[in-house]
Amino acid sequence: MNVLDVAHLEVTHPGHDHDSSLTTVRDVSFRVAAGESLGVVGESGSGKSQTMLAVLGMLGRAGATVSGRVTFDGTDLTALTQKQLRGIRGSGIGLVSQDALSALNPAMSIGKQMAEPLIRYDGHNRRTAADRCAELLQLVGIPAARERLRAYPHQLSGGMRQRVLIAMAISREPKLLIADEPTTALDVSIQSQVLRLIDRLRRELDMALVLITHDLGVVAGVTDRIAVMYGGMIVETASTAELFDAPGHPYTRALMQSVPRMDRKPGDRLPAIPGLPPHPSAPPPGCAFQPRCTLARDECGDSVPLLAEPDPARAGHLVRCPVTAPVPAEGART
């Protein structure tokens, strides 16, 4: 069963001028099965974080228009009021954001922040909430959990803060955990610990996971499937092993080659991707990657290619490129 089913999601922000608008997410569809972990890989401006904020219904304040369908656990979230959505946030879907220092309220102790929704919505009193919070801190591997509850965010190290943020996200036992670049702001040695922590919690608590990152190394170890986003669209999606073995989209391939890797002997020059990612106010015609693509042909600028399954033998491997993955005669999917 799918915990999350997103279909044809589109997010448009009003531009600075009245007649311009920014479409940051374009026709994004994906599913996350119960207990599954999906990696969403993309650079800044690829629409990966916007997609998740739209799922949580948190783009309203920014004045964005969201269209498409978001079904969580059988409920269509786009049909809910803000108040009903609040019932889903936290208790149905937990969010871990990137920079734990700015994601924690600097003026409130850890314990108070953690306990807030537990007391307000889950029927805890202060004492039982404190017990639960200490238990959660222990679960995420923070020693001397009781004492830590009184600490303020600035008194903890970066890794500790990220653990607190994770504890907060799972405190109401969500079915789906969305982690947006949870390790980017951390030291390398802490990164892998936090990543493994998230992986363990997902298994133990039987959550589905959406892991948003720009780092292919991060998703390689802990996800079942990967969706690669570029210019607001999903350009490729496949099982993790399949994607790394046989990347189909030119962008995915270029990304894999242009990242310097520790386990590879360096060549002289990195095959860097030339040019800049598209700006949502001026998307290129046709394929979003076409201006930077070495394989681009004339027709790439004509229309946005379909997300198609080039090889029936590799079910579930979808690529949005007519050059490397020509649409087969039948069975085209979007």
Binding site: L56, M58, K83, R86, G87, I88, R89, G90, S91, G94, L95, S97, D99, S102, A103, L104, N105, P106, E116, P117, R120, Y121, L165, M168, A169, S171, R172
Partner: peptide
């Protein structure tokens, strides 16, 4: 971010 965090946890 921390205000977004609070919202993401369902706080009114």
């Amino acid at each position: 971010d921390y205000v977004q965090t609070a919202r993401s946890r369902g706080i009114g």
